[in-house]
Amino acid sequence: MGKCSKDKRDLYYRKAKEQGWRARSAFKLLQLDSEFHLLDDVERVVDLCAAPGSWSQVLSRKLASKSANPATIVSVDLQPIAPLPGVTTLQADITHPSTLTNILKLFGGEPADFVCSDGAPDVTGLHDLDEYIQGQLILSALTLATSLLREGGTFVAKIFRGRDVDLLYSQLALLFDHVTCAKPRSSRASSLEAFVVCQGYRPRPGWQPESLQLKHTLVPLDLNDASIDAAERSVAPFVACGDLSDYDADATYQLEKGVQAVSLEPVQKPTAPPYKTALEKKRAGTLR
């Protein structure tokens, strides 16, 4: 077991290592781009929740190395991101106001063409809580995106397609001309993960994501007005991305003999997980 078995299990995982991507999720952005041409003619890009940096890597390879007019790329995460050519990394909290100021400073005050977020919390297994936390993450990314994007700009974020996903679609549809739910072929059908591709940003004066929060509630509030579930729901059109000739994330591939035995080292070692000490204690046999 160990490294070898995971190599065999997931072809994208192996391909990522072979092609030097920091994580298999690089293929998701590549496949989203091939469908939606997200990276055509973009000059200023923000990658939120970027660590370990595979999406930034895609942005770097595709946009920073362009001979004419290389794009300005800013990657933000709470965790440190190893340096990438042509990418400015910010170790910052996306909900903090100073982050916006810092990004705008790097763009010379110009708005962004494209904001993306591949961030996800550690799922607990309580599906409703996990969806809520993911929703909050998207909302934080969206809040920042609405302050950064130019009119007509694009926002892409990871979502969990659970019970409240239709509510999220409705909210996004207020701000963008086209909202699509996209599933790259490198994302497993067995996972709830998908991506919202929001194109054609249409700023709405007065729209404040904070309006969704309670701190602006006027008190006293008659609880009878806090009625149950009248929110509007809609379903965004679905687009599968990536060519059918691309590898299938759900399939089991038989590797040629010989290839199988070679285990590849990860391109970028994972950032220290919070439970690192617990793991060390477990290995030492002192956890019981």
Partner: peptide
């Protein structure tokens, strides 16, 4: 009387 949200208090940091 459980009919009103009477007060919303905070500490100035609305973190998650």
């Amino acid at each position: 009387d459980r009919t009103k949200l009477e007060k919303v208090s905070g500490c100035g940091n609305e973190c998650s």
